[in-house]
C-alpha cells in the first residue's frame, strides 16, 4: 500500500512478480498513456516557453508567450470573453434542458421509448454533419428557417452573420446535442427511491414540491457530473463553431480552441498555442475545483453519513 500515513514495506518476491505481470498486462494502455498523453502534455509545457513553428528548432523564451498573451495580444481578452460567454450560457442552459427532457421522458407518456431514441440521435450524428445541417438552417441567404421567415414577409434574421447574434445562435446549436446528458439524467431519475415520493405524497406535497425537494436533491451528484463534463467540453468547443462561423463575424465567435488552432496551424505559432492550451487547462482546473469545493453545499450523496 502506498496510501498516506501507511509505511511502505518491501514487496515479497511473489508480490514483485505479480506487480511486474500486472504492469505487463496493462502495458498497452500504459504505453498509449505515456506516448499520447503524458509526453504531449510535458512537451506542450516546454513548447509554451519557446518560440516554435513546427519546422525550426524551438527557441527558449521563458514566460514571454504568457506575458504577451495577457498584456499585448490584440485578441486574447476578446477570445476569453467569447469563451466565457459561450460556457456561461451553453452549459447551464444545456443542463437545464437535458434535465427537463429527462424528467419528461421519465414520466409515463405514449411513445416514451421512441422519444428517448429521438433525443439521443443528435449525439451520435458526427459534428461535421450536424454543423452543415445547422448552417443550412440558420444561414441568412439559404437557411431553411429564414426561408420560412421571409415567406411570411418578414426580414431574414442574421443568426450567424451578425456579431451580436452569432454567439447566442451557437449556444442554441449546442443545446441540440444534449442526448448523452439526458441519458445520464434519466438513469439518475430512475434511481430515485419511489418510497421518497410516496412519503412526500403522504406529507401532502404537490408535483412541484416533489420535484423541488425530492427529485433535484437526489440527482445532484449527476448534475455535478454533467456540469463538470459540460464545462470541460464547452471550453474546448471547436468543430461546430469553426464550421459555422470560423470565428466571425468580426471575431465574435473566436473561442479559445479556435484561437489556439489558428495560432498553431495557420500562423505556425506553436509556442503561443501551447501557452494558450496551458491557460485553458488552468482555467478548466480552477472551474472544476470551484465546483468540487462548492459541491459540499448543494450535492447530496445518499451514502454519506
Amino acid at each position: 500500500m502506498t496510501t498516506a500515513g501507511i509505511k511502505l514495506r518491501k514487496l515479497s518476491r511473489s508480490e514483485s512478480k505479480g506487480l511486474l505481470w500486472g504492469l505487463f498486462f496493462i502495458s498497452p494502455w500504459l504505453l498509449g498513456f505515456l506516448g499520447f498523453t503524458l509526453y504531449p502534455l510535458i512537451a506542450s509545457g516546454y513548447y509554451s516557453l519557446t518560440r516554435y513553428d513546427l519546422i525550426r528548432e524551438p527557441v527558449f523564451l521563458g514566460f514571454k508567450n504568457y506575458i504577451n498573451l495577457f498584456t499585448n495580444d490584440p485578441h486574447f481578452w476578446n477570445v476569453m470573453y467569447n469563451t466565457l460567454f459561450y460556457v456561461g450560457f451553453s452549459v447551464p442552459l444545456g443542463i437545464g434542458a437535458a434535465f427537463l427532457i429527462a424528467t419528461l421522458l421519465n414520466s409515463k407518456i405514449v411513445g416514451r421509448s421512441f422519444f428517448r431514441g429521438i433525443i439521443y440521435i443528435p449525439s451520435i450524428v458526427p459534428a461535421v454533419c450536424s454543423a452543415m445541417v445547422w448552417l443550412f438552417l440558420l444561414n441568412i441567404q439559404y437557411g431553411a428557417i429564414n426561408a420560412i421567415i421571409t415567406s411570411l414577409g418578414f426580414q431574414a434574421i442574421p443568426f450567424l452573420s451578425n456579431p451580436t447574434l452569432a454567439k447566442p445562435s451557437l449556444v442554441v446549436v449546442s443545446m441540440w446535442t444534449q442526448g448523452a446528458a439526458v441519458v445520464i439524467f434519466l438513469a439518475a431519475l430512475q434511481d430515485v427511491p419511489r418510497s421518497l415520493y410516496e412519503a412526500a405524497t403522504v406529507d401532502g406535497a404537490n408535483a412541484w414540491q416533489k420535484f423541488r425537494n425530492v427529485t433535484i436533491p437526489m440527482t445532484t451528484p449527476v448534475i455535478l457530473f454533467n456540469l463538470i463534463m459540460g464545462f470541460i467540453g464547452a471550453f474546448q468547443e471547436f468543430t461546430v463553431p469553426w464550421l459555422l462561423t470560423q470565428g466571425g463575424p468580426m471575431n465574435s465567435t473566436e473561442f479559445f480552441a479556435i484561437h489556439l488552432y489558428r495560432n498553431a496551424f495557420i500562423y505556425l505559432r506553436m509556442g503561443k498555442a501551447s501557452a494558450l492550451a496551458w491557460i485553458m487547462f488552468s482555467i478548466i482546473v480552477v472551474f472544476t475545483l470551484i465546483l468540487f469545493r462548492t459541491s459540499a453545499r448543494w450535492v447530496y450523496y445518499g451514502g454519506e453519513e
Binding site: 448552417l135 444561414n139 431574414a156 442574421p158 452573420s161 463575424p249
Partner: peptide
Amino acid sequence: GPDKFAGMRQVEGN
C-alpha cells in the same frame, strides 16, 4: 448590408 454579406461568405466558405 454587412450581415447579408457575412451570411453569403459563410455558405461560400464552406
